[in-house]
Amino acid sequence: MSHTAHIPSHRKPRQRASKTALRAGVAGGVLSTIAVAGAAGPAQAEPVTQTIEMPTITAGLSTSVAASAQATQLVALDLETQAAEDAAATAAAKTATKAKAEAVRKAEAEKKAKAAAKAKAEAAERASRTAERTTLSASTGSSASASSSSRVSSSATGSAASVVAFAQSQVGDAYVSGGTGPNSWDCSGLVQAAFRTVGVDLPRVSQDQSTAGTQVSLDNLQPGDILYWGGAGSAYHVGIYVGGGQFVGAQNSSTGVVQKSLDYDPPSGAVRVL
């Protein structure tokens, strides 16, 4: 047997025995460690039992959740209350707006009713005065009464007589600046209205009326002539000559519409339209 063949048969078994012993020692140590850990296990379980107190934690959490839920309910209740208050305020505002609109409507209706009643009363008064003036005009035109004939010159005829009759029927009315009747006049408003009864449309103001016809001498006046005070084209007052040396005019707020002699307030000139 060779030297080489002898070595494997004697040395290799030893090596395996040594490794087996080492492995057995390691395994034994591991098993011992496991055994010690197993023995020590029960002693380390006691802190776990003391730490896990689920009822206490659960009770605290339940209290917090309940408090949070109550707070949420209170907030929701506050929001609901605020919403109800806002809705009530909006409804009240709408009601107030409607009430105000209704009050305005009623006030307007009452105002219109008063205006209509006033207009009706004025119309009735105008109708009454018109009837009186018609009677007076007819009496004057036909010379049926002595008083009328004394007011109007016997030479007043036709349109001139109507103008004179209208002017005389306004005697006693009030003077109001800018007045055009039926119960108050200014000087040019009265003259314009008198000539309108015979279809003659005169200018509105004294300055224009003083040049509306043919200039005539104050020594050659006829009933129905327009008298003016001031310059022709710049007159500040007008009246109507009614004959017999007299005129009718809306003089001022103190006298109103009067019939006076030319000597009372001598005019500056005259124009003839008819």
Rank of each mutant, 00 (worst) to 15 (best):
M1W: 10
M1K: 08
H3C: 07
T4P: 00
T4A: 12
H6R: 14
P8R: 13
H10T: 15
R11L: 11
K12L: 14
K12M: 12
K12E: 14
P13M: 07
R14D: 08
R14F: 09
R16G: 04
R16F: 10
A17E: 11
K19P: 01
A21F: 06
G25Q: 09
A27E: 09
L31W: 09
S32T: 15
T33Q: 09
T33M: 14
I34P: 00
V36S: 11
V36M: 13
G41S: 13
A43M: 07
A43P: 00
A43L: 12
Q44L: 14
A45D: 14
P47F: 08
V48D: 08
T49L: 15
Q50K: 15
E53I: 08
E53R: 15
G60S: 15
L61H: 07
S64K: 10
A66N: 14
A69K: 11
Q70Y: 10
Q73M: 03
Q73C: 00
V75N: 01
V75T: 10
A76S: 15
T81F: 05
E85F: 07
E85V: 12
A87L: 09
A87E: 11
A89P: 00
T90E: 13
A92S: 14
E102A: 15
A103V: 09
V104Y: 10
V104S: 11
A107T: 11
E110P: 02
K111N: 12
K112S: 12
K114V: 12
A116Q: 13
A117C: 07
K118P: 05
K118Y: 14
A121R: 06
E122V: 07
E122T: 08
E125I: 04
E125A: 13
R126H: 11
R129W: 09
R129M: 12
A131P: 04
E132M: 14
G141S: 09
S153R: 03
S154M: 03
S154P: 06
S155H: 03
S159P: 09
S162L: 05
V163R: 01
V164F: 02
A165M: 00
Q170R: 15
V176K: 13
S177G: 08
G179C: 07
C187D: 01
S188G: 05
S188K: 06
S188M: 06
G189V: 05
G189P: 00
L190Q: 02
L190G: 01
V191Y: 01
A193Y: 02
T197D: 06
T197C: 06
T197R: 09
D201F: 02
L202W: 08
R204G: 01
S206M: 04
Q207P: 05
S210F: 05
G213Q: 05
N220K: 14
L221Q: 04
L221C: 05
L221T: 03
W229P: 04
G233L: 06
S234E: 11
A235P: 05
Y236W: 13
Y236P: 01
Y236F: 10
Y236H: 15
H237D: 05
H237S: 04
G239A: 07
I240A: 01
I240D: 00
I240R: 00
I240M: 04
G243H: 03
G244T: 02
G245V: 04
G245D: 05
G249A: 10
Q251S: 08
N252M: 02
Q259I: 10
K260T: 11
K260A: 15
P266Q: 06
G269Q: 02
R272S: 02
V273I: 15
L274P: 01
